[in-house]
Design a protein around this nucleic acid. Sequence first.
DNA 1: CGGCCTGTTCTGCACAGCAGAACGATAGCT
DNA 2: AGCTATCGTTCTGCTGTGCAGAACAGGCCG
Lengths: 251, 251
Amino acid sequence: MQNRPAYAIDSVDHALRLATLLRQEGPLGVSEAALRLGVARSTAHRLLAMLVYRDFAARDARRRYVAGPALGRPVPTEPVAELRSLALPHLRALTERVDETSNLTVLVGDQVRFVVTVEAARVLRVGDREGRALPAHLASGGKALLASRTDEEVLALYAGPHPTVPPVVDTAALLRELRRVRRRGFALNDRGTEAGVTAIGRAVRGPRGAASIAVSLAMPTSRFRRDRLAGWAGELAETATRIERELATTG
Amino acid sequence: MQNRPAYAIDSVDHALRLATLLRQEGPLGVSEAALRLGVARSTAHRLLAMLVYRDFAARDARRRYVAGPALGRPVPTEPVAELRSLALPHLRALTERVDETSNLTVLVGDQVRFVVTVEAARVLRVGDREGRALPAHLASGGKALLASRTDEEVLALYAGPHPTVPPVVDTAALLRELRRVRRRGFALNDRGTEAGVTAIGRAVRGPRGAASIAVSLAMPTSRFRRDRLAGWAGELAETATRIERELATTG
DNA sequence: CGGCCTGTTCTGCACAGCAGAACGATAGCT
DNA sequence: AGCTATCGTTCTGCTGTGCAGAACAGGCCG
């Protein structure tokens, strides 16, 4: 990012800042957008309307706004609805068996999107992250999916600067970690994206071998035990296998 | 895309339109941006400065502006420089053998970017498209690369609306065409992206089997002959194989 | 149902965004 | 190398556009 231009245009600055916020922080309401920009609610609403008009934003089902396709993040729609109904019973069963929150995520560019969340029944639990996005290289499901790609594909994904998501991704370290993920069969995210949350993720292969979805278990770090890891990983593998079978059947 | 908002903000509209133009049409100068928006050159320059400031644009080496990282298109840098030096002799040899313009393209999201162009020696030829981007589903190299992906991955890429690139991609038709591409071993783009230009593309597999780069031949449609297709496809295959061998050695 | 909060619509006003002019840089030709 | 035309960049006066506040509409919870 550069110095502020000598002849800056404030209205344009507001719009571009808002687009960047939508992309980085997932769904935002009008009031929060107004707060973050330091403008009136009516101004924030007008800016959001302009962003929607030019596809830099989209409205969600809960009166909030998300990044739109012009920001390079297509909003999954219909295929996701099918995926959700297919995966939901399996995720519910998984959460019942282990009593931790389970998620289904989809790789979109260099982020994973949460498509389904089934929360654990306990009072202390990781909550619902449906609709949110996380950097793929940090999230457990994201790492599992990146590990199902070639090194070349991963490098191509992270080529070039990412000034909107500092710090820049250390691709050498990422590739080393992805090799470990491949060996173990699952990926770990220990407080890498949220304080106090530890998650284990596993890729789900599509009918033709490649993977673009993942299942994961997310738990309070206080409940994470290394000696239980093999058990959780086994449950994830079984869930992934069941989903894979169903995907193979329905095409 | 929606109706124009009741309380539109013209300055914001100009900026967002310009960002979209940069993304769709590759490098633009200040004067052309002014023309396309219907504003003064000084206004276009101020808008571009704002886009650069917030990473929706970047300046290139020739006083022009390209889409920036905030538009979800990381600008390939170092890996591309290596790729260029590796591929250039092979592309030169290809262009000498067939006397048509050859290109090396990289799949980035749902577009292909032209990384290397070697122009044919003839007076009537397809020119240099380095730095430009085309929709993957229309370009020959793009189709070849999409064909190296699973149907599921292609669907995930095109899920959701793409109103900035009308018409919306007919994914069923695209999948059918990609099946043909897989059978034949090459992809064809007959005037699908530029009037009077026909191109043949072939994916180059990476060291571990997958492909994110393609080689293609682009020619004036007047010089395209169906009876020559097998010959051109054979030359492309040979060039792809040579590049693959070199990637396997150095990669 | 009522109250509260948030999203959406409308309008008066002053200052921010615009275009034109001037200046600086670049490219091409002789 | 010098000149010219074109294009990028900087500056400024002015008016109409973008802003905030007020009013209205919608949604949620007790």
